[in-house]
Structure formats: structure tokens, C-alpha cells
């Protein structure tokens, strides 16, 4: 058995595992009767459908005459840098305010895409920090803090 169609193979694998996982959780909910369906019935059916769909994709992807595709070019650096920057934004926004989070996010974004020009990072901070404050805080009045939380106590 050879994985001919790698893209469909991994998609199928994801569908199958996700489907089985959800079906398991759904089966712990009350299923109910056909007149009064419980909260578990519908997700269980959908999750089983998803798992079957995954199985179909898996089987088709190992057949000899499937279209040959390759799963490649997964860019760990970009994925990690961008998502870490976003997660840091989430962690820092409440305790430290925009004045810390915006530069952190922008530095993280820069790391995602070498070569890094610190001059450009500085410029983007200088432009985007005031812009963010003016648009979201001053004009729209969203509950975002500019400064770290201890300034407000």
C-alpha cells in the first residue's frame, strides 16, 4: 500500500480522527427519543458522517490510480512565529495594554518573515500604535487599554 494522494490522505486522516473524537464526546450526552431528541443525537450523526467521509478519502488516496499529490512546504518558522505573536497578544492585552502588545506582535510578525529589518519594525510600531489607539480607543471607544493595568488602579 502506497500513499499516492498525500493531500487527500492527510485530509481523510484528519476527518476520521476528528469525527471519531467528536462522536465519542457526543455519545456521552443524552441521545433521547426520536420525538424528543437529546443533545447528543445530532452531533453523533454528523460526527459519524465525518468519520465515514474521512475513510472514503483515505481509501481513495492509496489506490494506484489516484492523482499523485505531495504534502510539502510546511513552513514551521512562519507558522510558529505568527501564531506565537498572536497568542502573546492574547496573553498580554489585558495586563499590559496596547503599548506593550502592539510592539510585541509586530516584532513577532517580523520574525516570521526574514530578513528582519529592525528599522522597519520601529517604523511600523511608530505608525500602527498611535493609529490603533486613535481608531479603536479614541474614535470607537472599545474597551482596550493603552497602558499596563497598574496605571489604572
Amino acid at each position: 500500500m502506497k500513499i499516492v494522494d498525500q493531500k487527500n490522505f492527510f485530509t481523510g486522516l484528519f476527518y476520521l480522527l476528528f469525527g471519531i473524537g467528536v462522536a465519542y464526546v457526543a455519545s456521552t450526552y443524552r441521545l433521547g427519543t426520536s420525538t424528543r431528541m437529546g443533545p447528543g443525537f445530532f452531533p453523533l450523526v454528523v460526527a459519524i458522517g465525518l468519520a465515514i467521509t474521512g475513510l472514503v478519502l483515505l481509501v481513495a488516496s492509496v489506490r494506484g490510480h489516484a492523482e499523485s499529490t505531495k504534502f510539502e512546504g510546511f513552513s514551521f518558522r512562519t507558522v510558529f512565529a505568527v501564531l506565537a505573536a498572536v497568542v502573546l497578544f492574547g496573553l498580554l492585552i489585558e495586563p499590559t495594554g496596547l503599548v506593550v502588545t502592539v510592539p510585541v506582535l509586530l516584532v513577532g510578525a517580523a520574525l516570521a518573515h526574514p530578513p528582519i529589518s529592525w528599522r522597519n519594525v520601529a517604523i511600523s510600531i511608530a505608525v500602527l500604535l498611535p493609529m490603533t489607539w486613535v481608531i479603536f480607543v479614541a474614535l470607537l471607544g472599545l474597551q482596550l487599554r493603552l497602558l499596563p493595568a497598574f496605571f489604572y488602579q
Partner: peptide, 14 residues
Amino acid sequence: FPAILLFCCIGAYS
């Protein structure tokens, strides 16, 4: 793209 990231983070948060 850094601006897109930033605005999207604020959008998701707010």
C-alpha cells in the same frame, strides 16, 4: 501584513 495581523487580533479580541 503586520497591520493585518494587528487589526485581526484586535477584531478577535473585541
